[in-house]
């Protein structure tokens, strides 16, 4: 393929800028053409005429004349604007958990209350044996077959209120009924 030489004049000191502009243009439009045609290497230098070009590159080259002046624009690499980092959402302050000791105290208190309630309902276990357990004579007693506990309300001789809960304090309660006469 014969190169088509185009005569041109390239000004000495403006050559660099011109070549840079050409290179920039080629990246946009000449690259595809290079697929079908001969790829041309451009040696940056001062070439004043076609004759000088042919002497340097031979007739198989393509002498592209670029006229005019181009001021290469500085390549500005866009710097991605950092996205505004959202402020970390303030986590709601957790209510300070009660200390372990406080928890334990609370549990102990609850347990104590439960035990007290239970103690009211359940007769206290005998702390000691009855004083005459080993020296008494067994007697024959007729036991009642009642199934329900009695319920009552009254007062003591001192005026204190008393109810059936009186029986819950012991396993057995003996009620001695008497009169003044």
């Amino acid at each position: 393929m014969r190169a088509e030489a185009i005569k041109t004049r390239i000004l000495g000191k403006k050559m660099l800028a011109a070549v840079m502009a050409a290179a920039s243009l080629c990246t946009m439009g000449c690259a595809k053409k290079a697929d079908d045609d001969t790829f041309v290497m451009i040696d940056v230098g001062y070439i004043d005429s076609e004759k000088e070009f042919i002497e340097k590159y031979g007739e198989d080259g393509t002498y592209v004349a670029i006229s005019g002046f181009a001021t290469p624009e500085p390549v500005v690499t866009p710097v991605p604007t950092p996205e505004a980092t959202p402020e970390p959402t303030k986590k709601p302050k957790k209510t300070p958990k009660p200390d372990k000791e406080e928890k334990e105290d609370k549990k102990d208190k609850e347990n104590k209350e439960k035990e007290e309630k239970k103690a009211e309902a359940t007769p206290k276990p005998s702390g000691k044996k009855t004083p005459y357990a080993s020296k008494y004579q067994k007697v024959s007693l007729d036991y009642e077959s009642s199934s329900d506990g009695i319920k009552f309300e009254t007062t003591t001789l001192d005026g204190d209120a008393v109810s059936q809960s009186l029986f819950g304090r012991n396993k057995i309660t003996m009620v001695n009924i008497w009169t003044q006469t």
Binding site: K124, L157, I172, M174, V175, N176, I177, Q180
Partner: peptide, 9 residues
């Protein structure tokens, strides 16, 4: 001992 005595007038 688990035993108590109460009077009732």
């Amino acid at each position: 001992t688990g035993f108590s005595i109460v009077g009732l007038s």
